[in-house]
Amino acid sequence: MNWVSKGCVCLVGLLGLIDLYLALIWSPPEAQMGDLVRIMYFHVASAWIALISFCVAFGAAVGYLLTRRQRCDMVLVAAIEIGLVYTALTLVTGALWAKPVWNAWWTWDPRLTTTLILWFLFIGCVLLRASMEDGRRRAVVTAVYTVVAFLDVPLIHLSVRLWRSIHPDLVNDTGFHMPGSMAFTLMFGFVVFFLVYVLLLYLRVRLEWTRRTLARMRGQAGVRETLVGEAYRTAPSTPMDGRR
């Protein structure tokens, strides 16, 4: 690990500690939920980051289909994987928040259901990618599937919303429905989570880039060896043979 990523991790860690202080100590408890409302700062920030990550994945997928650049494919893979991590965190924190508040680990709320479907959609995408050998096909299939899945999400959300809804609407078109100190903590947490996301994206893309460098070099060496082997087989009167 180089000093840049070490420095970034330290900086983000420091901001994370400030976020912890704001979320767990500084912000006030809520009238009905009490201290349990503090889970919101992690739950909502994780959900937003997951959504941003899948938006980035969609952008990268479209970019790959239009330009066929490897860079887009690397960002696509990274964004899907990180999006899955944050979706999982959203689901787990959501269940942990729901239990004491709604007295159930899981409810068939549209946002919960959509988030779980989103997780299933993209875990399938990761499995699909991992189970393919051909690199170019793998990249195209991942990009196409990401586009289809992403465009399907609004329809999924609409249909699940028609089905049933009990989720609290803390943030909607009319603004934040909470005191200023809570809104500040929420937004600060979001910024910290976003910085963590950028760092994770950088680390994951770097890993993918190194992996591909290794694969490319191995591939080139393989081709070189094959060509040399072919040359020996197809040219029997080389100087070496003459000497033999």
């Binding site: 994370g16 767990l24 992690f42 965190l89 942990l96 994770l200």
Partner: peptide, 9 residues
């Protein structure tokens, strides 16, 4: 819960 989120990350 906090430990879970940050520990997971």
């Amino acid at each position: 819960v906090t430990l879970l989120v940050w520990g997971g990350t």
